[in-house]
Design a binder for these strands. Structure first.
Length: 299
DNA sequence: ATTTTCCCCTGCCGGC
DNA sequence: TGCCGGCAGGGGAAAA
């Protein structure tokens, strides 16, 4: 599903193609996309706007116009944003919800099978810092996101570290997949109370988060299911996932069988040996396998 | 205040 | 073969 690396991949592809372009046509075929806003008002607010910058905040994709207004898009589960040099041909987007046309003839479609995705117009003059406050937290790839800062964000929280990292108001952009991967990288069990990691573990986790996000961005995101990048292509990160979706496979580090359960209503994958259980339960004897690295997985 | 639960929505998959 | 229940999970609202 689209998380920070997937949205960042799309952003990077749209930026050079849309910057300076003016929107000449908008069609919203699914009113739920812009709800509770009025479709006609949403469309007319976009016509004639020139794109100044294409940005990202957490999992939000942002088209910033020279008027100061901002179009925010969120892909949620199955949303797709697809740029084309020309208009989309009929049926090009199976679950089409909106089309944006630009002055050079190019187009951007928003497709979304599950219809969880949303679009908002943020009026000019809105202070974005204030706008995101309380809902969208730290950008994990920015300089301020240090191990100390991560520890501060988690301080006093008793919820599972997995749940806390999924909370967008704390750290923005992490989803189910990259949280599993980051916790594995840091040797931290997903059920550990968020505020009770050691200094060393916060450090490892901060590094793990950044490392996995950077690797994923370099790979163009993960196309496990429906994700496609801004040009309709698949990402390559799925081949580098170490634990997520790997239930029953050997851990790429130690060979122990990867476990799965539900944490925070989400399917959660971890290595029972590399990420020791907070209750101290022993790793079952016989679950170890000879050290072996899966194909396509770098240790 | 923080934490937990439920719900939104629909394609897809496994089981019968 | 076809029907159907259950699953997937980002995020927000309501409930605890």
């Amino acid at each position: 599903m689209p998380e920070l690396p997937e949205v960042e991949t799309i952003r990077a592809q749209l930026a050079p193609r849309l910057t300076g372009r003016t929107i000449t046509a908008v069609a919203v075929t699914d009113p739920l996309l812009v709800a509770p806003a009025d479709v006609d008002e949403f469309c007319s607010a976009l016509i004639g706007r020139a794109v100044r910058r294409v940005r990202r905040r957490g999992k939000y994709l942002l088209l910033e116009f020279d008027s100061g207004a901002v179009l925010a898009l969120h892909l949620r589960m199955t949303g797709r944003v697809h740029w084309r040099a020309g208009p989309p041909s009929d049926g090009a987007e199976r679950f089409l919800r909106a089309v944006f046309g630009f002055d050079d003839g190019s187009s951007v479609t928003f497709g979304d099978a599950r219809r969880f995705g949303r679009a908002w117009m943020i009026p000019a003059g809105t202070g974005l810092r204030e706008y995101w406050r309380g809902r969208v937290g730290d950008e994990p790839l920015e300089d301020g996101f240090t191990a100390r800062r991560l520890a501060e964000l988690m301080r006093g929280r008793r919820v599972a570290i997995k749940t806390a990292l999924l909370n967008q108001a704390l750290v923005a952009g992490l989803g189910n997949m990259y949280v599993d991967e980051a916790l594995f990288a840091a040797h931290v069990h997903p059920l550990r109370p968020a505020g009770e990691l050691s200094e060393r573990e916060y450090r490892a986790l901060q590094r793990g988060i950044r490392d996995r996000l950077r690797v994923a961005i370099a790979a163009g995101g993960a196309s496990i299911d429906t994700y496609r990048d801004g040009l309709g292509e698949r990402g390559q990160m799925q081949a580098q996932l170490r634990v997520h979706l790997h239930e029953g496979d050997p851990c790429p580090r130690c060979g122990t069988i990867i476990a799965k359960s539900v944490v925070g209503q989400r399917g959660t994958y971890w290595c029972p040996a590399c990420q020791p259980d907070p209750t101290g339960a022993a790793v079952p004897v016989g679950s170890r396998r000879p050290r072996r690295v899966r194909e396509g997985v770098s240790g």
